[in-house]
Write a protein that binds this DNA or RNA. Structure first.
Lengths: 226, 226
DNA sequence: ACCTGAACACCGTTCAAGT
DNA sequence: ACCTGAACACCGTTCAAGT
């Protein structure tokens, strides 16, 4: 599989274009999933597309732009439709889960996308628009809507980062005497979780608490519907 | 300031060592603050220490190890002491704020540290030990303690990432017709916040809701103190 | 043990040449 | 317009040579 991957193409413009911004984004997502964020280079991406690295720059502004394309692919998986059909709190649960699943499906992308600022793409603003409209309809005071949405998103993103960390990172085995309370809680968590990944349990715990707290707040500040 | 920064040292082992793991970490943190995550290279770090890049490898395993050292510096700023003196929920507020301040003081480190898995350092486990012990004392069921702590940390880290994003990234100016609800909420937030950074408002909103929700949960599941 | 200097494999990106 | 090929400046890391 050495030279099979290399471009078999002579110099000069090809009769029909080989690349597309979309094709590049899709190949980038595949490469990311296969080789992780470290193995994700323009050279390897070009190789996967059977093209020279410089060819990419005819369709894309640079590596950051490629990552922006990957973000679009992943973000399109986030389902915001529940806000049209369900109460705000139930919809937020669905949204948060779909948000997290979209990232969890491509673990190596999380670090890359978390780090790079979101693009102010219209599509992203449209997602916000749907969520905002539903919350206003539900009686949330308008100035509180965006801080609330951002808070939930921050929690989701932080949880996604937690989910890609090695599971046994804080195994206190051998240090039980130094950190007895932690070691005991560590054991208790394992015993109670069974096969459930610890990151999933933390996500569910946090999301439930966050939504409970927001419900309390909503009761208190709700604006009478007209 | 060109050749003043270069090492004025001849080959061979110096009489007294020039570098230390600590010195490297401190210089790395300064460099990170000054030049951002992108400008943070081993070559520039060496230059700041007036040393050749290869000299660093006598004290440090590589770039990831340098970042681990930076993490220790930043994490040491997190104040966990409130858990010894205050109720669990008040202590968690103090802890969360100090956690966030520690990161906010060095914005460029956030992306770097968020991305790289936490080291399983004893010091980190000791922080957890303090928090866990206080929560168990407060009557939290042991299996729920770690998921709860991790949920709060995920929220804090996600908020820190949100805080380093450009403030005007989602300014809907010009797209008001496409996203009217979002545009209106955007204006309402600005009007109500005044000089408060939006990321701060989202953090306070989320932390308050999270703690409210956790208090509800605590009431429900509290184990009678012996 | 701990520095310099030279070297290695590999980056992301630019640009002329070619069709 | 859209590819190849050559080139550039810069990476992180290794290692022999020197004291």
């Amino acid at each position: 599989m050495a030279e099979i991957d290399r471009p078999a193409r002579r110099v000069g413009r090809p009769r029909t274009a080989v690349l597309t911004r979309e094709l590049i984004a899709e190949a980038a997502l595949r490469l990311l999933d296969e080789s992780g964020a470290d193995g994700f280079t323009m050279a390897r991406l070009a190789q996967a597309l059977r093209v020279r690295p410089s060819a990419l720059y005819n369709h894309v502004d640079g590596k950051e732009d490629v990552i922006a394309g990957v973000r679009e692919l992943v973000s399109d998986r986030i389902d915001v439709s529940a806000f049209e059909t369900q109460p705000w709190d139930a919809a937020m649960r669905v949204w948060a889960h779909s948000y997290r699943v979209a990232f969890a499906a491509h673990p190596p992308t999380v670090a890359l996308l978390a780090t790079l600022p979101l693009t102010g793409a219209l599509r992203t603003m449209q997602m916000y628009d749907t969520v905002v409209a539903a919350m206003v309809r539900a009686g949330w005071p308008e100035p509180e809507v965006l801080p609330t949405i951002v808070a939930v998103e921050s929690f989701i993103l932080g949880s996604a980062l937690d989910a890609i960390a090695p599971a046994d990172m804080f195994d206190p085995s051998g240090a039980e005497d130094a950190v007895p309370a932690f070691a005991s809680a560590y054991e208790a968590r394992i015993a109670s979780l069974g096969a459930v990944p610890p990151a999933d349990a933390a996500f569910e715990t946090g999301l439930a608490a966050l939504l409970d707290g927001l419900r309390v707040r909503h009761e208190r500040v709700r604006v009478a519907a007209s």
